[in-house]
Structures are given as C-alpha cells and as structure tokens.
Design a protein around this nucleic acid. Structure first.
Lengths: 217, 217
DNA sequence: CTATTATTTGGTCATCTGACATAATTTGTC
DNA sequence: GACAAATTATGTCAGATGACCAAATAATAG
C-alpha cells in the first residue's frame, strides 16, 4: 500500500508510457490554457485518466511542473546539441544553420507560448528559475562554441559575450515576430537583418566585412 | 440601487483614488504571486478592502486585468516619451540615454517580472495581446525616431528595422541579465557590448566607426 | 498458480474561487 | 437638513481546487 508518488517510480513499461502521456497532456494544458488553468484535474482530463491516478504518478502539482519543465528544456537542449554536432559544411555554414533554426522555431506556436510561460514562472519560482538558468547556460555554451569554430582567432571571452548578445537578440525577437505578433510592415527584411548581425558577431575581426550586404549599416 | 460596476464610474475624488489603490494592489499581487494567484479576493486583501467593494469598481476580473495592463503600459510609454522629448545634448547622447535607461530598468524586479508575466498572458489572451502590441508599436516608433535623429542620412525603412533589432536585443537581454538571473562571469562587459552594438545600429553608414572601441569585433 | 507489486478507481475533505444580491453608510449637492 | 448618488459591508451560491485515503484491479515474478 505504499504510494510510489514519484515520477521515477514508474518501473514497468506501461508506467513509463503513462508518465510520458501525462507530461504530453500537461504541456498541452500549459500551452492552450496557461498556468492559471494548469490544474491537476484538467491535466488528468487531458491525459484521459482519473485525478487520483495522475496523483499516483505525481503526488503534487509541483512535482509535475518540475518534471514537465525538465523534460521540455532537455528536448530543446538536445535539438541544439544535434545541430552543434552536425559536421557538414563549413563552421560558418554550421553557425548560420543554428541561427536559422532558432529563428524558424519562433514561428511555432507551441515553442513561443511555452517559453513565454516558463519565463514568467521562473520569475517567481526558484526551482523553475534554476532549471531555466541551467538551460540558458548550456545554450550560451553551444552558441559560444559555434562562434569560436567560425571565428578561430576570436578570444574566448569575446566569443562568450557575443554569444550572449546573439541569444538575447534571438529570444527578444520572438516578442516582435513570434507567434501571434502582428506582421509589422516596418520590419521588412527583419529576419535577414538579424541573421546578418549575428554573422557579424561571429566573424573574426581580421576578416573583411562584406560591404555590399544591405541592411545593417 | 443600480450597480455602476465599471471602473470609469468612480466620479468623485475618493473613488478615483480608490481605483488607483486597487490597481496598485493588483500589480503587487501580479508581481509577487503571479497570474495564477491573481484572484479578486487576494487583490481585495492587498488593497485592504472587502471583496464586494472591489467588485463595485471592477465587476469582473477581466475588467480589472485590462485596466491594470493599460495603466502599466501607459506608464512605460510615458517614460519613453519623456526621454524622447528631453532636448539636452546631441541626438547621439539622447539615443544613448534611452538605451541606458532601458538597460537600467531591467535591474528592477518589478519591471522584469511584470513584463515577463504580460508576455505570457498576451500569448493566450487576445485583448491583452492587442494592448501589448500597441505598446511595442509605440516603443518601436520612438526608438526609430531616436535613431533617425542620431543618423539623419539613414533611410527611414532601415531606421525602423534597426529599431526592431535594438528593441529585440534589449528585451531579450532581460532574460539573461534581468532580475533573478545569475551573474554570469562569461558575460563580463555585457552591458557595454550591448550599448556599443546599439550605437552601431544608430550610426550613419557614412560616419567612420571608431575602431579603438573594444568589444564588438 | 499464487504472492507480490504496480496501477487504477471512487470518494472525502477543507478551502478557495468568481459572481451575485441586499442592506447599510458615506458623500456631494441643493 | 434633504435627497440622491456614490461608496462600503455582510452574506450567499454553485462550482473548482489540491491533497489525501482505502479499496479494487491488472500485471509480474517466483
């Protein structure tokens, strides 16, 4: 009669699958209804199970949220890692693929909404903030490595700092061009401008910047 | 005995003050407890009044949220407008003051948390999204004007696009260096780098960029 | 097959929630 | 002071919420 109560306690295959079902449902609720509607009952409904069964796997709402968050950032981190490991093309092309992937991801409704939601939760919940910060550390590391591969002569310190600038630029861009944002005619060529600027930040200061590229001054 | 029920119905001075008290309390609740805890009772407590009294001023939670949001963005918009109107110094100095003010504001807990919260709500609530989008339109306009003042030869289109880049960069930076974020040693000189990049984006392409400035390549 | 464990179910509990109704009180105006 | 409008207080209502519990069923191991 001892209650397992913890997500890792799902030992058998069915239990593992059930945990995944629950997390899938929880993500759906968070995205479609927001954190205010992120209730155990609603998640149980979305996962097509009884409340008490959901609570068998995650005894508290907090447990569930943390597991959901960890799985989510792990998925995004893995995507970045896969991109970073892809060895085809020059380092410059690899860097550009990375930027284009990140910008492309912003057109996805789920990606936008879940990160906006997580930023907000992290502002108040220390446990969530810790996981998010670890994710951004990893994100910055990968970006920094991509820069150093593309611009070998750049000092490590500068590459790290420029990685911070790029990440800020990209994440911030989701607020202007992400899901649900108006198509601002004033921002024609916006994506190209961002890509160009990122490439400038990942270029050796020795190399000559192409001056025939329109956009950035 | 007809219930006024709407926020504008507070005609007398005391009523006006009461509405302000309510909105102050509501902001406090939103910042300290988050949207999930943004309940009428909690706000009434924070405003030191009874629930029914709060409901006299804002008959629904939705009314209260919209009023709160509108007042909040109006305040930020007014701050930006005041900065834009300040005529002391060169346009370049004025532009830099604007950037530094925006970055400085990110060290404020309330500013960070309330915007993170509003971004999340806007992702699901169309009414909130509309107000936020209008705010960012105004924000972009002011930034674009500041750029054009500092770099008169820059085409309007390019100034608008660069304003978008700058706004994205600054808003995104709050996620890396805003309230509650770790002091990442890898990002030493981060603020200077951002300011430098913004100034580059607000410079005439004709003018020579100072090459003795460290940081950006 | 049976003993054991894993999973699922139905139900209770105190508390909170938004909305509403009604009466009492204060305030401004004539 | 009278009178109406504006403000505040008390109370009710159905429904939702997180946590908890005991028992029933399904799956697995010995």
């Amino acid at each position: 009669m001892t209650k397992p109560s913890r997500p890792g306690t799902a030992i058998h295959e069915k239990g593992q699958r059930r945990v995944e079902d629950i997390l899938d449902a929880a993500v759906r609720v968070l995205i479609e209804d927001g954190y205010a509607m992120f209730t155990m009952r609603r998640i149980a409904d979305a996962a097509d199970m009884r409340l008490s069964n959901l609570q068998y796997y995650f005894s508290t709402k907090e447990d569930l949220l943390n597991a959901l968050l960890q799985r989510t950032v792990d998925i995004y981190d893995a995507s970045l890692a896969a991109l970073a490991q892809n060895r085809t093309g020059t380092p410059q092309m690899k860097f550009r693929r990375m930027i284009e992937y990140l910008l492309q991801d912003q057109t996805d409704k789920d990606s936008c909404i879940i990160f906006w939601e997580l930023w907000a939760i992290a502002g108040r919940d220390a446990a969530v903030a810790a996981i998010m910060n670890a994710y951004y550390d990893s994100y910055l590391d990968k970006m920094s490595e991509a820069i150093r591969a593309a611009a070998p002569s750049m000092p490590k310190r500068l590459a790290q700092r420029n990685a911070g600038v790029i990440v800020a630029l990209i994440e911030g861009a989701s607020l202007l061009r992400g899901f649900g944002k108006p198509r601002r005619t004033s921002l024609a060529g916006y994506e190209r401008a961002i890509i160009g600027l990122c490439e400038q930040l990942a270029a050796d200061s020795l190399s000559v910047r192409p001056s025939n590229e329109p956009g950035i001054p």
